[in-house]
Computed example of a mutant assay.
Amino acid sequence: MSSPRRYAVSFLALSLALTVALTAGCGNDPSPRASGAVRATTPTSTAVPTTSGPTTSAPTTSASTAATKGSATTARRTTSTPVRKATTRHTPSSTSTPVRAPKPVTALGPVPRAGAEPSVRFPRNEPAVGSGANASVGAIPDAAWAKMIGYSWTAGCPVGRSQLRWVRVNFWGFDGKRSRGSIVVNASIADEAAAAFARLYELQFRIRQMKPMDSSWGRNPKGPGADDYAAMEADNTSAFNCRYVGGEEASKVYSKHAYGTAIDVNDFENPYVADDGTVYPDRYFLTRRGPAPGVFSSSGSAAVRAFTSQGLRWGGLWSNPDYQHFDR
């Protein structure tokens, strides 16, 4: 064999041996570089063992989510639902009559004639002002004070104008009409007097007239002050009058009226008995002390208590009774 031929056989054998070696080392997989493809990487997974029973899907909720749902469920179970109360609708009856407030009384019947009466049965009184008793307390008006000077007030009296008050109040007259009256009292009992007369109004207690003691009554023939005897005969209700004790002027002892701390109401129906037994102004009602219009019948009567509840005492309990009199 020639040398070139031997070289060719040797090269062929070497190529065959190299091919066999490469095939044994790499297997049948084509080289990635040769094919140009990129091999995907598959993550390693853990196999889940299976059982012979039915397959159950594992829950995907996390522990914190489960706890939150549990709390919400508990809250829903413990929260009470408010219960609505049944509402009853009242259907007004077609036959019901609405209740109306009673109308205020504006007049009463006149008081029947009694066995004895003052000279003027129904004196002309000032008409009432406002509703109810409408009591007021204030300073004495100049015009009223001018009529008092020299009559119910004179120099030397124990009190002056500044210590007195002007009380105005509505009252029920013997004629059945609502009237308005005025009295002058000491400032220390002014509010009490106003309250007492307001109570008499509520009781529909009758008052003949209520006018201050002044020049209209004239001068007292038995001493200082306006004429109290004329006022008693006229059945006038009054208070301040700078005079001596009635029927006892010789003693020259000032009455409580001279201080404005005494009030006389309905003199004719509530007479006064002096120390000598004389009855002023009339004896008719002295023994007729039962309940009657304008009469203070007993210490327990509502009319008397209108004054005594204000801290005033009643002269009807004295040994020589003075049924018309209240003082402090």
Rank of each mutant, 00 (worst) to 15 (best):
R161S: 09
R161Q: 15
S162P: 03
Q163I: 05
Q163S: 15
L164W: 01
L164Q: 04
L164N: 07
R165F: 11
R165C: 09
R165V: 13
W166I: 09
W166C: 05
W166N: 13
V167A: 07
V167T: 10
V167G: 03
R168E: 13
R168K: 11
V169N: 05
V169E: 01
N170W: 06
F171W: 08
F171I: 09
F171L: 12
F171H: 12
W172L: 09
W172I: 12
W172F: 05
G173E: 04
F174N: 02
F174T: 11
F174L: 11
D175A: 14
D175P: 04
R178G: 00
R178I: 12
R178T: 04
S179G: 00
R180K: 14
R180S: 13
G181T: 04
S182K: 03
I183P: 00
I183M: 14
I183T: 11
V184S: 04
N186F: 00
N186S: 15
A187Y: 01
A187D: 14
I189M: 08
D191G: 13
E192Q: 15
E192S: 11
A193P: 00
A193Q: 00
A194Y: 01
A194G: 05
A195F: 03
A195H: 03
A195P: 03
A195Q: 14
A195D: 09
F197H: 07
F197Y: 13
A198D: 08
A198V: 05
L200G: 06
E202P: 02
E202S: 14
L203H: 06
L203G: 08
L203P: 00
Q204F: 05
Q204C: 04
Q204D: 09
F205E: 09
F205K: 03
I207K: 00
I207H: 01
R208A: 12
R208F: 05
R208W: 06
Q209F: 01
M210L: 11
K211V: 15
P212D: 10
P212H: 10
P212Y: 06
P212V: 15
M213S: 06
M213G: 04
M213V: 11
D214I: 10
D214H: 10
S215L: 07
S216A: 10
S216I: 12
S216C: 03
W217Y: 14
G218Q: 06
R219I: 08
N220Q: 05
P221L: 12
G223I: 13
P224A: 12
P224T: 13
P224L: 10
G225A: 07
G225P: 02
A226V: 09
A226P: 02
D227Q: 07
D228I: 15
D228L: 14
Y229I: 07
Y229C: 01
Y229V: 07
A231E: 02
A231S: 14
A231K: 03
M232I: 08
M232Q: 10
E233D: 15
A234V: 05
D235N: 15
N236T: 13
T237W: 04
T237I: 12
F240G: 02
N241C: 12
N241G: 06
N241Q: 04
N241V: 08
R243V: 04
R243F: 00
R243Y: 02
Y244M: 07
Y244K: 10
Y244E: 06
Y244T: 09
